[in-house]
Design a protein around this nucleic acid. Structure first.
Lengths: 140, 140
DNA sequence: TTTGAAAATTGGCCTAA
DNA sequence: TTAGGCCAATTTTCAAA
C-alpha cells in the first residue's frame, strides 16, 4: 500500500470502469503493473467491489431517505437482520450517536415510503423510534 | 426504460465492471444490444457513473461518520458550499428531517475527526448544531 | 517488463419490427 | 425510426516467460 496504490484507488473512485491501460497511462507505468496492483487491492479487501452510480428518481424511486432507528438494546441485532431483508433498504449501518442503526431507504413515492415506514419497518419487534431524513439533493 | 434495462442496472449495481458480454450472457441477448442500452442509460443520466467500493479503514480512515448539520435557515446554502470544500466530506446531502444537511465524513482517527468537527467544520458561519453518528459496521 | 494469444470493446452496417 | 444482430478493426485483458 503505497502512494501509487492510493492514486489507483482515487482514479477508480472517480471512474470504476477505467481500464488498466488508461490508469497506467495516467500514472506513467505499465498496464500489467496496474492490473497486479489492483488484483492485490481486491484480494486484500481494500477494493471491495465496483458499482454503478444510479439516479434513483430516474428509475422511479422518488424518495430516498437516510433513516435512523432506535432499538431496545437487546433487540439491536435482530432488528438489523430484519431490516436487511427489505430490498428497499439499500444500505445499512450500525452506528453510535443519535441512532443505533442507520439505513438508506429507497421508495417510489411518499405514499409507498410512509407505508413502508409505518406498516412494515415500524412493525419490526424491538424498534422504539424511527427518524427519517428525506434527501432532497445530493451535492457531492 | 423497460424490464431489461432494470436488470442491466441491477447487474451493474452488483458489479460495475461486468463486461457487456457477460451481461448479455446473463440476460440471454447479444452484446451489442446491452452496449447500446447501457450507452442510452448513461446518456439519459440514469447511470451517472461508476465507482470502486473502498474499505475506508484499509486505507487509514478508521472513522467514518454520518453527520447531520443544523444551520440558520438563511446560511443553509453557504454552509453546504463550505462543507463541500473539505476533502474529508465524501458525500453531502440536503435533507428534511432532524438535520438540514447530512454528510459522510472520513477521518484517520478519532483525534483527527474531533479536530475536524470542532476546529474546522464547527467554525463555519451559520452552523448551529452538529450531530455525528460514527459508523461501526456496514451491514449492507 | 515484455510478448502474444484470447477476450472485450467499438463503430459501422444491415434487417426487422 | 428504433432496437437488435452481425462483422471487422482496435483495444484491453491476462498469463507465461
Amino acid at each position: 500500500m503505497d502512494e501509487k496504490d492510493l492514486k489507483i484507488i482515487n482514479l477508480l473512485l472517480e471512474n470504476g470502469r477505467m481500464s488498466y491501460t488508461d490508469i497506467a497511462k495516467k500514472l506513467g507505468t505499465s498496464e500489467s503493473s496496474i492490473r497486479k496492483r489492483v488484483r492485490k487491492l481486491e484480494e486484500m479487501g481494500v477494493i471491495k467491489g465496483y458499482t454503478a452510480i444510479i439516479d434513483p428518481s430516474k428509475i422511479g424511486y422518488n424518495v430516498v431517505a437516510l433513516t435512523g432507528f432506535d432499538t431496545e438494546p437487546d433487540k439491536f441485532l435482530s432488528v438489523a437482520k430484519e431490516l436487511a431483508k427489505f430490498e428497499e433498504v439499500k444500505k445499512l449501518f450500525t452506528s453510535t450517536g443519535d441512532h443505533m442503526i442507520m439505513a438508506e431507504i429507497w421508495a417510489k413515492d411518499g405514499k409507498e415510503f410512509s407505508d413502508l415506514i409505518f406498516n412494515k419497518l415500524g412493525k419490526i419487534e424491538g424498534i422504539k423510534k424511527i427518524c427519517p431524513a428525506i434527501i432532497l439533493e445530493q451535492i457531492k
